[in-house]
Amino acid sequence: MAAGHTIDALGQFELHPVLGAVGRSVGFSQSSMMMLIAAVLTIGLLVVGMSAKAVVPGRLQALAEMLYDFVHKMCIEQIGEEGKKFFPFVFTLFTFILLGNLLGLLPFSFAYTSHIAVTFSLAAIVIVLVTGVALAIHGMHFFSYFFPAGAPIYLAWLIIPVEIISYLSRPVSLSIRLFANMVAGHVMFEVFASFIVMMAGAGLVGYIGGVGPLALNVILMGFELLVACLQAYVFAVLTCIYLHDAVHLH
């Protein structure tokens, strides 16, 4: 990959069809493959983990329960009692993004959350749901959201467009944040890994010097594990906050 003096940091994000001729004919890329694996793993964890139904949970059951409990608490804390209604949605979103981020860190796999098409689709689903919920609960009163009570009426021409832009920027910032974090992490991995290969090409001095970027990559892996969990959490918690706004309208 880094045989010459070039570092191909973005090549890793290219999509390739998998599963041979069948995959090629339907455009089934490694990204779709990882999504499928993430979905199967999530369902597998919940089904296999909870099949024991033990009072004292084993490892898998404890993992499944903690995951469930964590998202459940987050929903109720952020949205309120109504949050229980949205728990399945937030749980699906959280586990899908979390597994996408984490699986992407494995060798030979692919982080589907590093594509803005994926993250923006998720954010668009969130914003459509939030707007739909707000319209369903509050009806036309929802539009008062764009003009805060107590603001001088002669500033409406300025406040309303600004509030609308601010509202519409939510999915954009939501998707850019996740996508940028994942891309940045994977690019850094690639760049430091290329340094190792380049150094190794420089003989004995290079073998010793290559330890530096290797150590950096090890540290980076720990950091990326944190980022993977944190970004999934941030995405889910912001979804909850937007749902809170939709349910309560401030």
Binding site: I165, S166, S169, I176, R177
Partner: peptide
């Protein structure tokens, strides 16, 4: 810093698109 940057840029992107 990252979040502030993302917020600023995303609002601008939406506004420019509109």
């Amino acid at each position: 810093g990252l979040r502030v940057g993302v917020e600023l840029v995303s609002a601008l992107v939406v506004a420019i698109a509109i």
